[in-house]
Design a protein around this nucleic acid. Structure first.
Lengths: 194, 194, 194, 194
DNA sequence: CATGAATGAGAGTTCATTCAT
DNA sequence: GATGAATGAACTCTCATTCAT
């Protein structure tokens, strides 16, 4: 029964996600996953031969997950500021929930493999944000920013926050600072230099 | 002779730094450090009882290390733009050398302890950058930015970069983008909105 | 199959008994037990996490083992002298086989734990001997001794012998002296004072 | 300076006695003794090369220690009952202080060596008690007991008590029972058989 | 000589991985 | 296939013992 096997696979993936999110990649053992899934040693091994394989399956699944799709909204000619605001709300939400983040695990995982997957994730993100900003510029909704530069700032500030918010307690104000900065760059009141 | 013991201690700290920087915290074992230091098991243990203790000694040492001291330069009335340029050059240098960064190790280490040390490090950084920007504002060298917001952007973009540049190959252009963005916020040509 | 696990458990208990009897508690290591049982490290650990746990399992098993049951014989109205003689024969037998005694191991084991088990064993013994002597008194077979006093003498002489017979070579005559003394107190020829 | 060396030796012996009395022989390490004596590793080793050697020195010292000397008192024609009473008082005292007893340590120590020392100790004790009882018999103070038998009972009850009183809480009444039994055998009221 | 840093053998313990049932 | 007992490699940690200072 391939369908059952597939279901167990999914189950393993879903049960181990929070383990990796909470503890990173290196600390998690096959034993931990056996316990989390209540599967026997042999049972687990018949699906995945290592934590690495499990983690890769998680990443794989993630990469297929439909993100908030800017593209669809852009095609529907939703105003760029509206799309951007929604995206930044989501970003703030994620910054507020560092425990869901696989960042640490990815970081550790990547340390030991050459993974094109990470580059892929990064490329997707860069393209997405670049497209959105271009779109705003074309519609005359955004200031004339340096697109590449701002995309870098957006992505890496986000990553930096996700990382450090797990280590040190961080107020939601900080997250708002970041999204605010981005808005100001694009369509906020240009009162800084005055 | 305590002096010898102290020297060995320092030696262990110095030899294990690159191990942690390269591999993170969890992957490093006492055995790895034995090998790196050429010390015997027992010899190592007589100095440190765990990798955690060694890592804490590294952090401790780091926290005492004199950072690029903005304060001294500010006291000497060096122009804010000069200090800032120097600081950003250093920042770019560090972004170009992710293999020296303890970020991953700190991240993993912190996952399992409540460490005020991290907060301390963060606080020091926030204060340093805040002081420098204030100084530039007071001297009329910087645009009237939102100080707190910009400091957050600076710090977390930096951290995000340090983290991801280990995972994915990143061009030095990206690093320049970041420092450029900061300069533009403070004293670059205000040509974005035009 | 829990039955296999249980069998291995029993096997470990049975194979380690002589080790403890011969060497005491502290000298025996998990490694010794691995070797005695031919089990691998991990295999042994999956049953018992320490020598302490194994030793406790031995004591536990011992406490369930049916001792020469005075009670049954008393219920069947066997003469007290007959029961007593049998018990003393057994006692002499045990004194002649110090290598089977867990005394040393119990002694060492108890040094580090507060074990009600030892008190339990002692209580059982006191009750058993007390009951037998009472029974002999009621049937008019025994002299009118001080029961408690004699029970103490019986028990501790026995323990003292078991202990020292391992350290110094001891002739069976000595063991006979002890059982003889007991018999004389209870039903021997009262010729001492003459 | 041989005199200083001798003093240090004595010091080591005295400081390690309680360690062995409390923990037995096997559990004590050279490290423990270093700590107890505040001597350095090398310092301790220059006096004794192993715990075994130290323990043997303790036994050696003990064997020279003047015990309550029955012989002297017998020579002075002190009544046998008086000497016996004093001896039994001391015995009770010792039974009340199991923590001072080296029994366990001797037991463990002997397990691994063929030690004539133990036989020597035992022989001394047997002779001492035998002599005292003979003396009492000759003076007509004691009942006509079987001397050898009673000596065995005395010695091994004592040893049994010393052993078990460390393992299980034991009331002083028990100790009194034992000494009382001995007195009754020798010169107590002969009311048992009545 | 004394000191205490360093060595290295060996015990304890944990898991990835295998395999008989 | 699934199970979980067993294996064995790799780690952690502790001391007896040595030796440069």
């Amino acid at each position: 029964m391939t369908i059952k096997k597939e279901k167990t696979r999914e189950f393993i993936i879903d049960m181990s996600y929070p383990l990796f999110a909470k503890n990173g990649f290196n600390k998690i053992t096959m034993k931990d996953i056996c316990e989390a899934t209540k599967l026997s040693r042999g049972g687990l091994y018949s699906h995945f031969s290592s934590t690495r394989k499990i983690f890769e399956a998680i990443l794989e699944k993630l990469s297929h997950k439909e993100e908030i799709n800017f593209y669809e909204e852009m095609e529907n000619s939703i105003p760029a500021t509206v799309i951007m605001n929604r995206a930044l709300v989501l970003m703030e939400y994620e910054m507020n929930h560092p425990e869901d983040s696989l960042s640490l695990a990815m970081y550790e995982y990547s340390g030991s493999v050459e993974s094109g997957l990470m580059q892929h994730f990064n490329k997707i993100s860069v393209e997405k944000w670049t497209a959105l900003i271009q779109y705003g510029l074309e519609r005359g909704e955004f200031y004339n920013v340096n697109v590449d530069e701002l995309v870098q700032v957006i992505l890496y500030t986000y990553q930096g926050i996700r990382m450090w918010s797990r280590i040190i307690p961080m107020s939601p104000d900080v997250f708002a600072s970041i999204t605010n900065h981005i808005k100001n760059q694009l369509y906020g009141e240009k009162n800084d230099g005055i």
